[in-house]
Computed example of a mutant assay.
Amino acid sequence: MEKTNLLKRSIAEGIGTALLILIGAGTAAYNGIITAHGSAATLADAGIVAFAHAITIMGMIYTIGKFTGAHINPAVTIGLASIGKFPWKEVPAYLIAQFAGSIAGAYGIVVILGLDGVILGNLGAPGLGMTTGYLQGIAVEAIATFILMFVIMGTAVDQRAYKGLEGIAIGLMAGGIIMLAGGATGAAFNPARAFGPYLVNSVLDGNINWSQLAIYFIGPIIGSIVAAFTYRMIDSSREYPVSTKTSFTESVK
């Protein structure tokens, strides 16, 4: 990993998160525009949205991972810090960058799709399905993030894993999770993925249900922490000292 200062790493995290929102949530918003004009939503549509997220996550891991670890998700940052794989003192900077990036990415959707992206596409903001209850939504988001974080731990954090394919594994897993859980909660499993579209929707008078935002904070943070500790428990033969490094692949030495 090329060692860079915290400011530069935070900027990279912000850019990575912005692109995740722009491309991932932007694709969801565009799909919303299409269905609003009379086209029925299909599983293929969900697959396209999932693929957009997957390729963006892959791209960011291979682009900024060597500098920042490519968390692009506050839940991942907190999960890594909870087991000493990321310094707590750097967590605030990463979180600020990620949430700022999510706002920038949401405004980027508006630039590309116009107000239709807000009114018809809701900026790709996640929301509960018609039959999904509030607590169920938290559970779904927790499970989704657990799966993602468990894969991150096994493919990117654990140095014994074969290196070079972690971006593909994590990206494809994220896509699979979206195809599974998208109908229930929108499958954000990332507080920043929800926050930016919610805020910008609100600013531009879009239709947003702020009462649901907590689901996308509580569920992912719980899921990420539980996954990190679960993986550490399974791998209990190894010790995990607090690391001052930020790269997934470097931080387990």
Rank of each mutant, 00 (worst) to 15 (best):
22 L>P: 10
126 P>N: 00
175 G>W: 01
174 A>P: 00
12 A>M: 14
172 L>F: 12
204 L>K: 10
15 I>Q: 10
106 A>S: 15
237 S>L: 09
42 T>F: 05
105 G>Y: 03
77 T>E: 14
95 L>C: 01
46 A>Q: 09
65 G>S: 12
39 S>G: 11
250 E>W: 00
233 M>E: 05
150 F>M: 13
109 I>S: 08
20 L>W: 10
95 L>P: 04
27 T>H: 14
240 Y>N: 03
109 I>Y: 04
236 S>L: 01
80 L>D: 12
131 T>V: 14
158 D>S: 06
80 L>P: 06
72 I>G: 09
143 I>T: 15
177 I>M: 10
251 S>R: 07
16 G>V: 09
216 Y>W: 03
124 G>K: 07
229 F>C: 04
9 R>H: 05
154 G>Q: 09
82 S>I: 13
24 G>D: 12
152 I>L: 06
219 G>H: 04
9 R>I: 01
49 V>F: 03
137 G>D: 11
236 S>V: 01
221 I>S: 05
169 A>L: 04
195 F>W: 04
103 I>C: 15
76 V>A: 13
148 L>W: 01
242 V>W: 02
238 R>N: 12
182 G>S: 07
224 S>K: 00
85 K>D: 11
226 V>A: 13
140 V>C: 08
77 T>D: 10
81 A>P: 08
7 L>V: 12
52 A>L: 10
250 E>H: 07
97 A>E: 00
2 E>Q: 10
55 I>V: 13
102 S>Q: 01
197 P>G: 08
118 V>M: 03
223 G>F: 03
167 G>F: 06
51 F>E: 07
215 I>A: 05
40 A>E: 15
36 A>P: 02
